[in-house]
Write a protein that binds this DNA or RNA. Structure first.
Length: 721
RNA sequence: GGCGAGGUAGCUCAGUUGGUUAGAGCACAGGAUUCAUAACCCUGAGGUCACGAGUUCAAAUCUCGUUCUCGCUACCA
């Protein structure tokens, strides 16, 4: 896109069910903020929108758990997240929220337009329904035993113990979490977005048109999705928390828009709200082809922002994103960050431990911004370590950048009476001239890299300019030159001119550093303006590269340090804190499980890991034909991790049985084993192999599987009853 | 299992369409210096580019295979 008329920049809407960690910050918010600050410094027309994503099933479920309401949860987290971003210097033009009426209106309009245009499909399917609560059950509202790991409190969408994603139909013994009753199946109607209709569009738009300007990881993910075959995706859910379907939609009662559909529309409603607040027209930002739309997200969000939302935008008649610079993930001390496991550093924690401390303040926000940008996972997953943070702060930010600014100001006070010295053009050395050139070159490099979303490289160039400053000063050594004194004890004219030139250039370089570092470290840039006694307008990008930013004879403030060193003890403390958090978390999980078991007890059930199934009569049991068999051969099933193909001798015949035990046993070590087999189970094909029966297994507390077999070797085919 | 991304110096990462002795920052070692937050500056050491084969005059780069990490996805009694 050449010369956009305006920019609309978005950061992924954070889900309002808890505090966000520094991985989120590094992935979607910080890079966006840097980009936006750069564009704004160029005085371009740019709007930076974000907001809390407050719908979806996780929030009402959490509310139930905590004995509160969904509303209370979002009202709790929305302002905290907003403040956290502010403390970290993330400067949204608007931080909106999807629970706002304006969003409801916007999302409903969006749905209606697509629906009226015939861009959605309606399908009727059987879903679980809770008769007592008189409502359909979202996946998350159904609990049961995980077919994979037998965890008895797995949810209908995912098992929290083994992490496997599930559908409610797979759960053994499904139970409604609303009433505790067994749900029934009932027909329901839902609207679908047929992604498959847009495959050709996506192929051209992403794989051809953006083959060169989008990140390789983004293109790769998209290709993987498209090649995997796109399917219609449900747009609505049976739930009472979310954007309800417009009243005009027939059969839409009791249904809400699926959160993935309503959340990205939040970008639009946020823009509308911003326009309202500022007396602007929001439409060109979403409708005019000359608007450059850029979504900053983490890699988990690629499919929504590159496949689904663009289809929605196209159907609705909006512009498409020009780029989606998704970041990979940031690991923490050797392990992936995880909210559920407690392995994370929340923004709030960092703010409390560093920014709010008496030796902290906004310079510590910049310290984190510096390190997170330094290790930004732009091309692959990266690694946050507290040691790395300390090193980056102490030996780069403090030693190179902070030190250069400080020594420039100190020397100016000592050697130039606290005033900006003149530049004596006729005595400029080659080094003076080349250093002046470096400033201009640095500006061009930083700008070019930022425009390519290479934030890490761009920031490196700024640091490099500080490094150049240090080298320059070292070579000119004004503290030595000052000793070339004349008869009056004062420096000679030549000496003073050299000192003047050196410090003039150093100070102009400082002013340039302020402009160039501003997108990355905004607090620092402002503090530098304060020290140089100039207004923030200095930070306008057009000023970068210039040598007349500070007027000759102007007196500057006494130097103050820009950054402080981080002590070893602070780092040790953080590492300890991290480790103890995960230990606490494990205790918590155990406690939680105990609580769940206790609640079962109070409900009058027997205390067992797996709830006892409903009572059956003897005839029910007698229908099951159990036999003892002997495994005569075993081999791994191709293209399946967990399946073994077994030949089992049952006396009267030898059968093929496919069993999901490959993770527990090697084929060769189970040959000859006696096993108990359900022989009258309906055949089922798995990975193309017909399985005729099922091997009974017991699972021990440690999750290992054990065969159920007679205590001594008996004849194959022996009945079990 | 399929697909995608990745494996390069102690650490964090670059390496464009294959082309000299594979780079940077930090850490480390030696030197120099003292204006500066024991900071800065100079020099240096440090790599079988995951492993194996192939194509080529030439491979970190292209092809195939193996292996490990991450993500998506399939299978799962």
């Amino acid at each position: 896109m050449n010369q956009p008329k305006r920019y609309l920049i978005t950061s992924a809407l954070p889900y309002a069910n808890g505090l966000k960690h520094i991985g989120h910050l590094a992935g979607a918010y910080l890079p966006a903020d840097i980009y936006v600050r750069y564009l704004k410094a160029k005085k371009l027309d740019v709007v930076f929108v974000c907001g809390s994503d407050e719908h979806g099933t996780a929030i009402p479920i959490q509310a139930t758990k905590e004995g509160t309401t969904a509303r209370a949860i979002i009202d709790k987290y929305h302002p905290i997240m907003e403040q956290n971003f502010k403390d970290m210097g993330i400067d949204f033009d608007i931080y909106h929220r999807t629970s706002d009426p304006l969003h409801k209106e916007t999302a409903q309009e969006f749905f209606t337009k697509l629906n009226n245009n015939g861009d959605l499909e309606v399908k009727e399917t059987e879903q679980y329904f809770d008769e007592q609560a008189n409502s359909f059950l979202a996946d998350r509202y159904i609990q049961g035993t995980c077919p994979n790991c037998h965890f008895e409190y797995a949810f209908g969408d995912q098992c929290e113990r083994c992490g496997k994603s599930l559908s409610p139909d797979e759960l053994i013994n499904p139970v409604s979490t609303l009433s505790g009753n067994k749900p029934i199946k009932k027909i329901t109607r839902h609207w679908y977005l047929p992604l498959n209709r847009h495959e050709d569009f996506l192929r051209k738009w992403i794989l051809k048109d953006h083959a060169n300007d989008w990140r390789a990881t983004v293109i790769g993910q998209c290709k993987s999705w498209i090649d995997g075959g796109l399917l219609p995706r449900a747009v609505t859910r049976d739930l009472d928390w979310g954007v309800s379907l417009p009243a005009s939609v027939e059969g839409g009662k009791g249904k809400v828009l699926y959160v993935w559909f309503d959340a990205p529309i939040g970008y639009i409603s946020a823009t509308k709200q911003w326009a309202k607040n500022n007396n602007k027209d929001w439409r060109p930002y979403w409708e005019d082809k000359d608007t450059k739309l850029v979504h900053f997200i983490g890699k988990d969000n690629i499919v929504f922002h590159c496949i689904i939302f663009p289809i929605m935008l196209k159907l609705h008649g909006n512009i498409l994103p020009d780029n989606v610079p998704a970041n990979e993930f940031m690991n923490l001390e050797g392990d992936k960050m995880s909210t559920s496991r407690g392995w994370k550093v929340e923004m709030q924690d960092y703010i409390d431990d560093f920014i709010k401390k008496e030796n902290g303040g906004s310079q510590m926000a910049d310290a984190l911004r510096y390190y997170l940008t330094l290790i930004a996972p732009e091309t692959k997953d990266s690694e946050f370590t507290w040691q790395g943070f300390q090193d980056a702060n102490n030996s780069e930010l403090v030693s190179i950048f902070g030190n250069f600014v400080n020594r420039s100001l100190v020397l100016m006070h000592k050697l130039c009476n606290g005033k900006v010295p003149p530049l004596h053009l006729d005595t400029l050395t080659d080094l003076d001239k080349s250093t002046i050139d470096e400033i201009r070159i640095a500006k061009e490099k930083v700008a070019s890299l930022l425009e390519q979303y290479k934030f890490r490289d761009a920031m490196f160039e700024v640091m490099n300019l500080a490094r150049t400053g240090n080298q320059y000063m070292q070579k000119k050594e004004p503290w030595i030159v000052v000793k070339q004194a004349g008869d009056n004890g004062k420096p000679t004219v030549e000496a003073q001119q050299s000192i003047d030139n050196t410090l003039h250039i150093c100070l102009q370089l400082c002013a340039n550093l302020a402009i160039l570092i501003n997108p990355f470290l905004p607090f620092t840039a402002r503090k530098m303006c304060y020290l140089m006694k100039v207004v923030d307008k200095l930070l306008d990008w057009e000023n970068a590269g210039k040598m007349k930013l500070l007027s000759v004879g102007y007196s500057l403030r006494a130097p103050e340090l820009l950054f402080r060193k981080i002590e070893d003890a602070e780092i040790t403390y953080q590492i300890e804190k991290l480790k103890s958090a995960i230990v606490n978390r494990e205790t918590l999980v155990v406690n939680k499980k105990n609580t769940m078991e206790e609640s079962n007890l109070s409900a009058g059930e027997e205390k067992k890991d797996i709830p006892v199934k409903p009572e059956i009569v003897f005839d029910d049991f007698a229908r099951t034909d159990l036999r003892v068999g002997k495994i005569v051969s075993a081999e791994k099933v191709e293209k399946a991790d967990k399946l073994l193909k077994l030949q089992v001798d049952l006396g009267f015949e030898t059968r093929t049985i496919v069993s999901g035990i490959a993770l527990h046993f090697k084929p060769e070590e189970i040959i000859g084993k006696q096993v108990t087999v359900v022989v009258n189970l309906a055949p089922r094909k798995m990975r193309g192999i017909e399985s005729n029966g099922m091997i009974l297994m017991a699972e021990s507390a440690d999750g290992k599987l054990h065969f159920i077999n007679p205590e001594t070797d008996i004849n194959p085919g022996a009945g079990v009853s």
